[in-house]
Simulated assay, not measured.
Amino acid sequence: MGWNIYLSGEIHTDWRDQIKTGCAQRGLSVSFSSAVTDHAASDAAGDVLGDEDRPFWRDHKSAKVNAIRTRTLIEKCDLAVVRFGDQYRQWNAAFDAGTCAALGKPYITLHDDTLIHPLKEVDAAAMAWATDVEQVVDMLVYLTTQD
């Protein structure tokens, strides 16, 4: 069975590539999807709908356009990995985790132990909490290779 894994969360490190590489090295039958990780492109997603005088309305339109992609990909995934980094607050990642929970999609959170308290509700709904990419890859090996 080929699994579709949705990778959500921070965009400032190469954690997505590390997971993809680790899964490829282990020969897993998985595919990956993600939100748009180019920050400028994501911010401009709604610009096709016309210019805005106020930043709020530009952000509002872009959020709605991005939500089309995000919700569709989460609905189609078998499992999501939601990464929270320490450099920025990832409100979008928390929203993605909530979407997964509402849709009954299993998800794994990925963050260090400094975020245990702020993410307690997000982690409580997760199927697992990983502290590093290797743990995620090891879980994917187990999940996708057992008969």
Rank of each mutant, 00 (worst) to 15 (best):
63 A>V: 06
53 D>Q: 08
6 Y>T: 02
5 I>G: 01
141 V>M: 05
137 V>G: 01
92 N>E: 14
135 Q>H: 11
24 A>L: 10
139 M>E: 13
37 T>G: 03
94 A>G: 09
142 Y>D: 13
21 T>C: 03
133 V>K: 04
110 L>C: 09
114 T>H: 14
2 G>R: 00
16 R>Y: 02
9 G>V: 04
56 F>C: 02
81 V>C: 07
101 A>F: 14
4 N>I: 10
141 V>P: 00
76 K>S: 12
112 D>S: 14
127 M>H: 05
104 G>S: 14
132 D>Q: 14
103 L>S: 15
140 L>K: 03
83 R>F: 13
66 N>W: 01
46 G>I: 07
139 M>Q: 05
44 A>C: 02
133 V>I: 08
52 E>N: 04
89 R>Q: 15
110 L>N: 11
114 T>A: 15
122 V>S: 07
116 I>A: 13
22 G>W: 05
14 D>C: 01
137 V>M: 06
140 L>G: 06
68 I>V: 07
8 S>E: 07
138 D>V: 02
95 F>A: 14
35 A>M: 04
66 N>L: 05
102 A>S: 15
44 A>T: 03
93 A>T: 03
95 F>D: 09
71 R>K: 03
50 G>L: 01
35 A>P: 00
57 W>G: 04
87 Q>N: 15
8 S>T: 00
25 Q>T: 04
1 M>C: 09
47 D>V: 07
38 D>T: 11
23 C>Q: 07
129 W>D: 03
35 A>H: 12
104 G>I: 07
109 T>Y: 06
75 E>C: 08
139 M>I: 09
64 K>I: 14
44 A>E: 04
18 Q>N: 08
76 K>D: 13
130 A>V: 02
65 V>S: 08
90 Q>A: 14
34 S>I: 03
72 T>L: 08
83 R>E: 14
141 V>C: 07
80 A>Q: 05
87 Q>W: 15
26 R>Q: 12
124 A>G: 01
146 Q>P: 02
79 L>E: 10
26 R>E: 14
16 R>C: 05
60 H>T: 07
141 V>W: 08
39 H>R: 04
88 Y>T: 11
4 N>Y: 01
13 T>V: 01
105 K>G: 06
36 V>R: 00
146 Q>H: 03
141 V>K: 01
89 R>L: 15
30 V>M: 07
63 A>H: 08
77 C>A: 13
144 T>R: 03
14 D>Y: 02
11 I>G: 10
